[in-house]
Design a binder for these strands. Structure first.
Lengths: 316, 316
DNA sequence: CTGAAAGCGCTAACAG
DNA sequence: CTGTTAGCGCTTTCAG
């Protein structure tokens, strides 16, 4: 394909001049400018992005690390990022890790090899000490709070949100409260959920916690297990609305009345929760994504707190 | 940051040798190889991807055009693509158009400027004549059927699926059938839905078609309108399970019995439909995405049909 | 206002 | 097995 020197030759000018009209420089005579433009049109020429990125040392490309690429929560953050990216003319590449440490490090390398200008981490598996050194190569933004000062964050105060939720449940008179989580103790959110439980309710009996919950079927499974306990829970705080929906469905199928016999609270205010009229905690993940994007392009190290909201519906 | 010639200098070899160890060439003496590797470690060196892409003329980057970045259907295809991309070591960049013709053309240019190796189009707004010329610069794969032979397709036979659905509805005895769609006549699926309706049911009265339906609230709105008609529909074929869920919810809220007074069929077999036990047509969009990815990396122009499946639940 | 020339960081003939 | 050299396609001094 045609390149800049061919354009220059055909237009009878230097490559510099061509580069100048390409980049809308002022000091180019109208004669030459139009001549160059004409040749560009004729040859249907488009400058090579790789060459430009190489020389500029900048790509306008931002990477988004997500553990799972089919999870409502991470999708929401991704959508927030995508919304902003189009208005600021950035490209976004999606980097799924499945919480594989090595994969995650490969993605961090993309910052170092100049492929990415910045990286947004929605959830990570490597320790921060492993990640922080890469801030030298580009800005890194986290969607979970971290004390690492080189890393900007757009975060929700999950601990506070969990405390609030348990307090609400307690105030409503629910005593035997169960929880579901995605990953087990390797996950910060899970640890925070349990901490909040300790603080508000007391010790969490192991049989009232089921992890490995991601989607509807997991909710079914969890409800099935919870409901066959001798002292079955009066309320379940699920780690997402889809899981909560599964719990609801299972409970219905075995004739357990919601909320009289079982209260349910989900998270993230998803359509399924709206449809089933489930109470939920909206962590405004899309807003988190939008904020993260802003921090990324500003190469900011600020810690921005995104407020959450408890939405009460009839499942409680 | 360090570059290849610095490594060469420090290791006391030529850049070629460094390049060779970087790319695992055979003919490098163990002595030099380890020496080079040592320097690379010491300097914490990573080769610049832009330089490599520039010289290779290939980026292992594939773009995915989606109209909306928060739509269940397009998300599913994206997830299929993402699933494959990690196993084949490709990167994926998401390109949201909002059906803006100009934006879409900008994305096509990314093929031409060597940023993208190939492009998957989940839904387009420009005419194929505008798009096809870009196949010269990289492979273009469509997730909707097209006769353009330069373009590979991973598609579902939507027309057949719509015909099947209407026939099922007819056989069940439903007579007054309404539909919802996303875009109006500018969309191929909408036109195909209407065609299928014509074929199976007959002329589609305008008041039995509501477009602009994307999510739960739109389903509410549509149901509200449909149910206040004098001859209100006995069945609604919605263009997605979320919309179907909204219809269901609204019907429930006004005491309309499902399916006795109103039958509902959705599309895409989403969690919300499972939870509400809504019948649906599963177009296996994730599989479509996976297929599209395969065609993309094989630069294939094949037309691959992905079979759909009608799932009957209690809403019909 | 214009152009020559020196790179950006890497790969790949080609000639040993 | 190794190094020299010529690019990939563009931007940007620098000197007119």
């Amino acid at each position: 394909m045609a390149n800049i020197s061919e354009i220059a030759r055909l237009a009878g000018v230097s490559v510099t001049t061509v580069s100048r009209v390409l980049n809308n420089y002022k000091y180019v005579s109208e004669t030459k400018r139009s001549k160059v433009q004409k040749v560009i049109e004729e040859l249907n020429y488009t400058p090579n992005k790789n060459a430009i990125d190489l020389i500029r040392g900048e790509t306008k490309m931002i990477g988004v690390i997500i553990p799972y690429n089919n999870n409502q929560a991470f999708d929401q953050m991704l959508h927030g990022i995508l919304n902003q990216s189009t208005v600021y003319n950035y490209s976004v590449t999606v980097l799924p890790t499945k919480y594989d440490n090595k994969k995650e490090m490969e993605y961090l390398t993309m910052l170092k090899n100049k492929f990415l200008d910045s990286l947004i981490i929605t959830s990570r598996s490597n320790d921060w000490e492993k990640i922080v050194p890469y801030t030298k190569y580009g800005s890194i933004i986290s969607c979970e709070y971290t004390t690492a000062e080189e890393v900007g964050c757009a975060y929700i105060d999950r601990y506070a949100s969990y405390v609030d939720t348990f307090q609400m449940l307690k105030k409503k008179g629910y005593t035997n409260i169960a929880i579901t989580t995605a990953r087990a103790n390797e996950s910060l959110s899970t640890r925070q959920t349990i901490q909040a439980y300790h603080k508000v309710i007391g010790k969490l009996p192991p049989h009232l916690h089921i992890s490995g919950c991601y989607r509807l079927e997991d909710g079914y499974r969890a409800a099935h297990e919870f409901l066959q306990l001798n002292d079955r829970p009066h309320a379940i705080y699920a780690n997402g609305d889809e899981v909560a929906g599964g719990i609801y469905n299972y409970a219905q199928s075995v004739g357990v009345k919601i909320p009289d016999e079982l209260a349910i609270v989900g998270q993230e205010n998803q359509p399924i929760g709206i449809a089933l009229d489930l109470s939920t905690v909206n962590h405004r993940l899309m807003k988190v994504g939008e904020q993260a994007f802003q921090l990324a392009i500003q190469k900011s190290q600020a810690k921005v707190n995104v407020p959450y909201e408890i939405i009460q519906r009839s499942s409680i």
